[in-house]
Design a protein around this nucleic acid. Structure first.
Length: 173
DNA sequence: GCCAACGTTGGC
DNA sequence: GCCAACGTTGGC
């Protein structure tokens, strides 16, 4: 961290730009599951259909190539099921102006897009999913956005420390 | 299926 | 700008 008011040095700026960030993306497996991602060409998919401004802002402005993503299944047996990587940064979600898409929004146009998405590529599908109820008991995850009451964000930040803990759980540590 | 907690919409 | 009504998310 840099103290408030202090001018950033070039090294620090480079570090900030280069340092990876960590995210969690939710999906209803009935809509799009990690197995669907595996079947996608190159293991890559665009994360279309997000119609929430906070989640959009994260995808449009904050997610960068190389950032790592926890893939989460919501619904039945909610759990973190795998790991992915951002391979394309925010660009307009063209499904918004496709009236036949699952989440059309007539207010969004190619000229003035409202909704944005990123592309992610599968890295790993965990051998064993990590259930939400297990995460609730893990020391160090107390402040994880996913576990906060009422937090419904479908694209959310994860602290590096939290990310590392979740990964260690996946490896059975 | 229930419902709490949000987000969005639209009248005023 | 307020806020009631409505829609959605998502765990349980």
């Amino acid at each position: 961290m840099v103290a408030a008011g202090k001018t950033l040095g070039l090294t620090e700026v480079k570090l900030m730009v280069k340092s990876k960030k960590y995210w969690l993306m939710k999906s209803e497996p009935g809509a799009f599951s990690i197995d669907d991602l595996i079947k996608s060409p190159g293991g890559i998919t665009c994360w279309d259909g997000v119609r929430n401004y906070q989640a959009r802002n994260i995808m449009r402005d904050e997610m960068k190539k190389g950032d790592r993503v926890l893939f989460y299944h919501s619904g039945k047996n909610p759990s973190v099921v795998g790991l992915a990587e951002v391979v394309r940064e925010g660009y307009p979600d063209h499904t918004a102006w496709d009236e036949n898409s699952v989440h059309p929004d007539p207010k969004s146009t190619p000229e003035k897009p409202i909704w944005y998405m990123v592309d992610i590529r599968l890295e790993t599908k965990f051998e064993k999913p990590i259930p939400l109820k297990e995460l609730r008991n893990v020391k160090g995850l107390e402040n994880m956005v996913l576990l906060k009451k009422g937090m419904r964000l479908s694209v959310q930040p994860v602290a590096k420390k939290e990310f590392d803990i979740v990964l260690s759980l996946a490896k059975g540590a």
